[in-house]
Structures are given as structure tokens and as C-alpha cells.
Design a protein around this nucleic acid. Structure first.
Lengths: 228, 228
DNA sequence: TCACCGCGTGAGAGCTTCTCACTTTACGGA
DNA sequence: TCCGTAAAGTGAGAAGCTCTCACGCGGTGA
């Protein structure tokens, strides 16, 4: 059997390539015109195929949007994990948390439409992709849970605080650590969301310093929470 | 001149009535299908007029959506003001704040699509209605600023904590009170937004108790902020 | 009474998503 | 090497959308 797998994966690989091209074009449209500007027709024209052809690759427009959301979750996840990983290992938990929060906001500000997409489900009703979406969302929590767990330990030089551990996530769901993580996330998301939504642009307030101040308050709160 | 005003306002009143009917129908569509489901065509059919006729009342679909957003701001504002007003005047500032936060969340949970609409500007670019939108958003802040101001005073029985005072709002923009109000708002909005967006539905966490806990933490923070 | 202006109509341009019968192309087993 | 099968792509078209516009009808104000 001389490499039967590569043969059969040729089509698969091409198919995946086309899907990536479609998503890349959709991201361009998203960046310059928001979710409304994403058009299957326009993507097809841009890629040089006829309109109906793309439906071999995405069952519907919502299907494409869902794929974009999952990609965005992974991208945000990777951005935060990379920032955390590039830090010196001897940093304090506080520094790790600051890095995490700042990279979260930076990503959102750099790609506002993608961030909006994360919290604007394309279809109001629960569709078939709800499960994969939830999984992607949970992967963000794992990072946060890892950093929050550092605060509990006395020695700060613990290895790999940003590792992905689904078992850890599953175990801590519903626990007090999880509660704290959700609460912290909601505060960070709150500022970022208001900032992006224009709710803050109307008010003349320095979001940069507000965010930094919020980070310090959250750290205080985390430390207090760990002293119970 | 025997009442020229009522005469000339006959058309005006009718016009306003039609606009209200259109918005009411749009709200029905919004409630059951989200912003995407709002269709000028379908509204016209439901009201028994032809499609193009509605453009005498709303210049565009975005125009209609903007009107809905402004209405939603006012509605949320009124809901909070009414809840505050119905309370006994001898309540403490803490109780007032709890009432405010709970009524905010209640309104959002009761009308999730309208709440989403508040922070999803229909048009990405800043349109002509940006100013009226900002005004409506600021009216929310005035209520919050009023309640936060109670914490500063020693005697809790101050009159009319929820009065609207644009001068007050304009004066405090950029001040430290304003900063605190924005920070508090962003935390409350953060939880509500995650809850509505489904980000929390994936995680099994009791949002009710989480929200109540968050309120207490915010009160603590407000009181600490006033002791500087 | 009469001119006017706002209202509603219906056609239609141009866009969209999505379906479907059809052709073409390429893979993989005999 | 050859050929059946399955996938890729086409183009027409249905149904929907927003929005425009020329056209008449009728209430309003002088």
C-alpha cells in the first residue's frame, strides 16, 4: 500500500484550502463593513467562481459565520496564550493577569468586528453548532482559570500556567474558581464591549487608564477571594 | 384664529400614529427573530400598505432601527426611574443601587433583543443620528450618577435621587464620579451581556447569585471610592 | 373654490441567499 | 490502462429584501 492516505487527502486538502480562502475573503469584508457586509455572492465573485458553487463548501451563510466565530475564538485564545508564553516564567501572578487582560483588550480593539461576532450569535435559536461554539468559548476560560490558579500557590514559579487542560476545565465548572473566573471575565468584557459599542465614545473618558485601574481592582479582588 | 394648531397637527398626529404602528410591528418581529427579522416589506404587508409607502415615514431601514434604539434607551431609562421612584424615600443608598442594578438586568432579560440593539449600532459608520443616540445613552448615566451621589452624602433622605438633570450630567462628564459610574456600568453590563450572548449559558453557573454577589462587591467599591 | 402637498400605489432596478438540473473534471479500483 | 463514480462548478431561477420613482388621489389651508 504505497501511501494511500495522501491520495485520498488530496481532495480533502484542496477542499480545506478553498474553505480557508472563503473565510479569508469573508474576514476582509467583515473588517471593512461589519457582519452585514459578508456576502456569499461577493466572495464567490472575488474567488472567481459562480455564486452557487460556494454552497459545496458552506451549507449556508450562517454556517460560514459560525466558522468565523470559532476561528475568532481560537485566534483570541492563541493570542493570549502566546503573550503569556512569551513572558518570563519568573513573573508574578499579578503580572500574568495584567498581560492576560491587556492582550484580551488589544485583540478586541485590533479586530472589533470579530470580537463583536463572538457575542452576537448569528442565529438566535440554538443551532447545530452550539456545542462546538461552547467548546471554543470554554477554551478561553481555561487560560483564565490557569492564571487565577497561580494566585493560590505560594511559589510563583509554577510551570505552564497557560496549558490547555479540558479535564481541569470540566472539573472546575461550577466551582468557586469558576465563579470567580466568570465574574472577572464579565468585568473585562464589560469595559471592552462598551468601548467597542460606542457607549463610551459618547462619554469623554480615558478608557486606557480606566482599564488599567479596573485591572488593579480585579487583582485586589482575586487576592481577597483566595484568602478565604 | 380658532385653534390653528390642532388643525395643522392633525396630519402630524396621524403621521406620528403611523410611525408608532410601524415601530410596534417592528418590535414584534425583533422579539421573535432578532434584528435580522425586521423587514420593511413585511411590516408594510402587516399594516396593509404597499412596500414603498413606509418610506414616507422612515427614510431607510437603518432609520427605523435607530428609532427603535432611541425608544429602547428611553424605555430602559423609564423602567429604572420608575422602580427607583416607587421605593420608599428612606431607603439607603445601597438599597437604591441594588434596585437600580436589578431593574437594569430585569429589563435586559425581559427584552434581550432590544438590549442587544442598544450596543449593536445598526450602521458601523457614524451616522447622522449619532448625536441623538449619545444623548439617549447619557440619560442612563444621569440616573446612575444620581444614585452614586447619594453615597457621598451623610443624610440618606435626599430628595429625588433619580431626577434628570442634563446640566449635572454635562458638569460631571470627565470627572471622577463619571469615571466611577462608567466603571460600575461596565461591570453590570458585562454580566448581562455575557448572560444574553450565551457566553454564560455554556457554563453551568448560577447567574442570579453571581449577579447579587457582584452588586455587593460594587457597593463596597463605591463606598471605598467615596472615602478618598 | 382651487392650488398644493402629503400619502399611497405599483412597477422595477439591483441586490441578496439558496436550490437545482446539468456538465465537466479528477480520483481510484479493476 | 480504462472506466465508473463522486465531487466540483455552472448558470438559470425562485423568492426575498431595500429602496426609487412616476403617477394619481384626496384632504388642507388660503
Amino acid at each position: 500500500m504505497p501511501t494511500p492516505a495522501p491520495r485520498s487527502s488530496m481532495r480533502e486538502r484542496f477542499r480545506e484550502q478553498v474553505r480557508e480562502d472563503v473565510k479569508a475573503t469573508a474576514l476582509d469584508q467583515l473588517a471593512e463593513g461589519g457582519p452585514q457586509a459578508i456576502s456569499i455572492n461577493a466572495i464567490a465573485k472575488h474567488l472567481g467562481v459562480s455564486g452557487g458553487g460556494l454552497y459545496r463548501y458552506f451549507a449556508s451563510r450562517d454556517d460560514l459565520l459560525t466558522a468565523l466565530v470559532i476561528d475568532a475564538y481560537e485566534d483570541l485564545h492563541d493570542a493570549m496564550a502566546q503573550k503569556l508564553g512569551s513572558e518570563a516564567a519568573d513573573r508574578t501572578p499579578e503580572e500574568h493577569f495584567r498581560t492576560l487582560a491587556r492582550s484580551y483588550r488589544s485583540w478586541a480593539l485590533a479586530e472589533p468586528h470579530r470580537y463583536e461576532l463572538l457575542f452576537k450569535p448569528p442565529v438566535p435559536g440554538y443551532d447545530a453548532h452550539a456545542e462546538s461554539l461552547a467548546t471554543a468559548a470554554r477554551s478561553l476560560m481555561v487560560i483564565l482559570l490557569g492564571v487565577l490558579a497561580e494566585f493560590g500557590r505560594e511559589d510563583a514559579a509554577e510551570p505552564a500556567p497557560y496549558q490547555e487542560d479540558d479535564v481541569l476545565a470540566a472539573r472546575t465548572v461550577g466551582s468557586s474558581e469558576f465563579r470567580l473566573a466568570v465574574a472577572v471575565w464579565s468585568c473585562v468584557h464589560g469595559i471592552v464591549s462598551l468601548e467597542l459599542g460606542g457607549g463610551l465614545s459618547a462619554m469623554t473618558v480615558e478608557v486606557d487608564s480606566l482599564f488599567e485601574y479596573e485591572i488593579e481592582l480585579l487583582i485586589e479582588r482575586i487576592e481577597r477571594d483566595h484568602r478565604d
